[in-house]
């Protein structure tokens, strides 16, 4: 196995995630796409950890950290979506444009 094949796969997942983040209107689906991107990052971490033969297993440890942070992010993200939905009766993020001029 070469390192590059994992990296290319990871790049594909990451790009698909970006596409999802940009194309989806529904906030829950945007969060799903973000999870895709995080999964791609995890693959990179573990693959590089194997490649560099890190004696402290840093790649895997950081993959675990990413999983943990992703769990936290999903929790907070869904809570915010819930709150927005309660206030606006919609979870479409393109309607959340109060930041505009």
């Amino acid at each position: 196995m070469t390192l590059a094949q994992f990296l290319v796969l990871s790049a594909a997942l990451f790009s698909i995630g970006i596409y999802g983040v940009l194309i989806r209107r529904n906030a829950v689906l945007v969060l799903l796409s973000v999870e895709l991107m995080l999964a791609a990052v995890n693959i990179n971490f573990v693959a590089f950890g194997r490649y560099f033969a890190d004696s402290t297993a840093g790649g895997q440890v950081f993959a675990l950290f990413v999983v943990t942070v992703a769990a936290a992010e999903v929790g907070i993200g869904l809570a915010i979506v819930l709150l927005i939905f309660r206030n606006r009766a919609s979870a479409n993020i393109d309607e959340l444009d109060v930041l505009k001029w």
């Binding site: 196995m1 070469t2 590059a4 990871s10 790049a11 970006i18 596409y19 940009l22 194997r50 033969a53």
Partner: peptide, 30 residues
Amino acid sequence: PAAAIAIATFAVLAGSAVAFFGDAEVDGVA
């Protein structure tokens, strides 16, 4: 537009991965 950005990202990431780690093996490591 979203597709274009996604494809460009893929091209950049995959391209650099192949360019810099093209022949790196991950086997043979405990």
